[in-house]
Design a protein around this nucleic acid. Sequence first.
DNA 1: TTGAAAGCGTTACCAT
DNA 2: ATGGTAACGCTTTCAA
Lengths: 340, 340
Amino acid sequence: MERAPSVVDVARVAGVSVGTVSNVLNRPQVVAAATRARVEKAIAELGFVRNAAARSLAAGSSRTIAFVAADLTNTFFLDLARGAEEILEKAELNLVLANCDSREDKQRAYLDLFEEERVAGLLVAPRQDLAGQVLGPRARGMRVVLLNAEPPEPGVCSVQTDNRAGGYLAARHLIELGRTRLLFAGARRFPAVVDRLEGARLAVAEAEGVTLEYLATVGVTTEDGRAVAESVLARDPAARPDGLLAGADLLALGVVQAAAADGSVAIPGDLAVVGYDNNRESWGSMTPLTTLDQAGVEMGREAARLLLEELREPAGHEHATVVMEPVLVPRASTLGHPGG
Amino acid sequence: MERAPSVVDVARVAGVSVGTVSNVLNRPQVVAAATRARVEKAIAELGFVRNAAARSLAAGSSRTIAFVAADLTNTFFLDLARGAEEILEKAELNLVLANCDSREDKQRAYLDLFEEERVAGLLVAPRQDLAGQVLGPRARGMRVVLLNAEPPEPGVCSVQTDNRAGGYLAARHLIELGRTRLLFAGARRFPAVVDRLEGARLAVAEAEGVTLEYLATVGVTTEDGRAVAESVLARDPAARPDGLLAGADLLALGVVQAAAADGSVAIPGDLAVVGYDNNRESWGSMTPLTTLDQAGVEMGREAARLLLEELREPAGHEHATVVMEPVLVPRASTLGHPGG
DNA sequence: TTGAAAGCGTTACCAT
DNA sequence: ATGGTAACGCTTTCAA
């Protein structure tokens, strides 16, 4: 356990030069079969493992991509990671993950870390109000693709979903079900939430006799959802909404849970609820949630493709913003029980 | 964007030697305030960012720890990561994550990757039947601590939960509620599941007139749970169990979902269900799940502490196996509705 | 307190 | 097809 064996040890044991060892490692075709065998034998005997640090230092480039995610507990982010991994794997690139836990300081720290590590590229699904943090690394030459966030300035690739369309679809769905008093709950500090609200407004404007109200929440957690339910339940029954658009699934889940616990508001009977995210964490919901699916895996794939493109042609690369359409997944929280 | 500025650029601009630059980076106390200021100014001007590869190559040690997880979609693993991060952060160590998606090849690949990267240490929460994969890296001198898995051989630290105790607690809980026909469902290829079953057997042996039956499943997913429900529903009502011990929460969740969809078996009325994991993904369950919580965050902390210890005293380090006690979290799937 | 120079383990290039 | 050698960017002696 002295010191890990290096290429020079391998070279010595195999009776060849270090250049040849490097060749069997990187361009096996150019080395004679017999020599290659000797080198491979030496590698096995010594238990030699390449030193990636030395490698990327000498080669001037790393083979790993980092994915910095705002919150990995939301399965949407993990779907993004999976999609990206799938594409990167084919390009023989590795993907490592970092979880920022929705904390500004962690996001900053991980971005710094990966910049120091000179990873080949950065996939960043930031806390939406903190997308600007990628500007520094970008300016210093890092390749970065943003996911699920508005590019803070042109010239950075991104993959987003059309949140306005999502909001529109959600509202339309409720309107088509005959709901007329809609309530949108969410935290305006998230740009995505603002867009969804706008989309919902659009759908309401197109309809006759439908109203839309906005209820501000602190965040978009289950707890925030319970607060929304409380606020709704506190109202005179006649003044209650009959359709709820939640800024996120967890928020919707909180509402559904609290409503069930209280018992005086039936879902979807009295109140139809639409979430957003298709977060697996809410899949087990008492009343399966109608939601907007953002096709996370496909977004991740797309982001990885964009990044690969930028890596391959650093020069003639067109910065693109890919916008994907969310799709409505109707379930019991608006449709009622499967049997009915 | 030519070439990133290096310490020698900084040194030139600041009018000092590279050694001095390195000193302000690593041992700021030893350099005169004035010089330090000049260097810091140069660093800011140039937008210098340390190269971690060069750093760990020269210093012979990295400042990052990798966490290789079998399946990050299970929030338990993310809790482990959080706990570890909390401790490592204080030691100025970074934590990067890798998701193996329960795939043997990915787990292998990530272990290889991090060994090549010469990370300072490895935290591995493997697929339980693949804990042996850490043996290679260990033998070559990597510091590794296993989480949630039996050490494949003595001499490797690990943090586990007492699965027998968990199984025992789960069964005892059902027995105390008066259930007498217990069914344990799970996949025996997971050592943890086997232990839980054993624990359950123990509790049953202590009780009068209680029977325990084992039902093999393919895995421990929601889908497997639905299959379990199907199998139970196919039986003559008199031959059905009245208490179910599931090998994991998702499995339990599937049972609950399928039972609700069918409607002929009330939970917990006809069948009380206990899960295992306290997986957040099942928190929204129609019937909140009674489960065993494994204190993931604390396990993560403990693993990180063990790893730090091993890093600090490579020599006189005692390999430890820390076993933590799971705690029963009783909820509606065994107790019935909160109001009743 | 600062400078000079020797590595760290690999790749890449130029000879051979 | 193979060998020799100069980088890569940093840390770490050791002297001054």
